[in-house]
């Protein structure tokens, strides 16, 4: 196994182990996602708008807000006892460090999404049926991009006094393109439209992933090194 991959896995495993020990961010994000779905479920007027019309937006707003909570923990855990210094002092390429953090964040956000999706089906009475593999694929494509951006912004925000506030302010504008793409693709999937109708949105999501995972990996060193 290449050394950089090994180091990235070491960092990711540490983050996952620490989170499983405390379960703070994961539990908060899952509970928060459930609450958002409950609020949307009771706030909508079923006679004005059908559940299937509203469902894609609700799903992605829930994913985005819950992901924000999960992403906040990525570097706040490094702030305690100056642990970030210990990490930066180790002879580990910054790219591997970013990859490790990204992997751990993908695991957290993916877990939150995996728990949220059945709740969403329950509350909105949406029949995923044949659309499920497509929705999983869209979720993976959209999540990779905004989690990559969220990881680097979490590293930036942690050095500020209001890290928890800074992350949403920095991240939300960058979440707009993948959210638009994901909502559009999800609504077409739920309506049973052919793949050709959503190909453009899938390309946008893939391009966003490619550009931002590359940019964030390259820029990470400049962000963490004072």
């Amino acid at each position: 196994m290449p050394e950089s991959v090994r180091l990235a896995l070491v960092v990711a495993a540490k983050d996952i182990r620490a989170e499983l020990r405390s379960r703070t961010a994961l539990l908060s994000a899952v509970v928060f996602a459930a609450l958002v779905l409950v609020v949307f479920n009771f706030a909508r007027d079923p006679t004005a708008l059908s559940a299937t019309d509203l469902a894609p937006s609700v799903l992605w707003v829930t994913f985005a807000l819950a992901a924000m909570l999960a992403l906040n923990r990525a570097f706040t855990v490094e702030r305690e006892n100056g642990a970030l210094d210990g990490l930066l002092l180790a002879p580990i390429p910054r790219e591997a460090l970013f990859a490790g953090k990204l992997l751990a964040n993908l695991a957290f956000v993916g877990t939150v999404e995996a728990v949220t999706l059945p709740l969403f089906v329950l509350f909105f009475n949406v029949d995923l049926g044949a659309a499920l593999p497509g929705i999983v694929a869209v979720t993976v494509l959209a999540t990779v991009g905004f989690v990559a951006v969220g990881t680097i912004f979490s590293a930036m925000a942690v050095r500020t006094r209001f890290a928890e506030l800074m992350l949403p302010v920095l991240l939300l504008p960058f979440m707009v393109p993948p959210l638009i793409g994901a909502v559009q693709a999800t609504s077409r999937l739920l309506a049973g439209r052919p793949l050709s109708e959503m190909l453009g949105w899938l390309r946008l999501l893939a391009l966003y992933d490619l550009v931002f995972v590359t940019l964030c990996t390259l820029a990470f060193s400049a962000v963490v090194d004072e």
Binding site: K14, R17, A18, E19, R21, S22, V77, E80, N81, G82, A83, D85, G86, L89, A90, P91
Partner: peptide, 18 residues
């Protein structure tokens, strides 16, 4: 360079959850 340096900071550099 970092491989041959050991740092004792005024913080412990340890994670409380581990």
């Amino acid at each position: 360079g970092r491989r041959v340096i050991g740092l004792l900071s005024h913080q412990s550099l340890l994670y409380d959850d581990l």
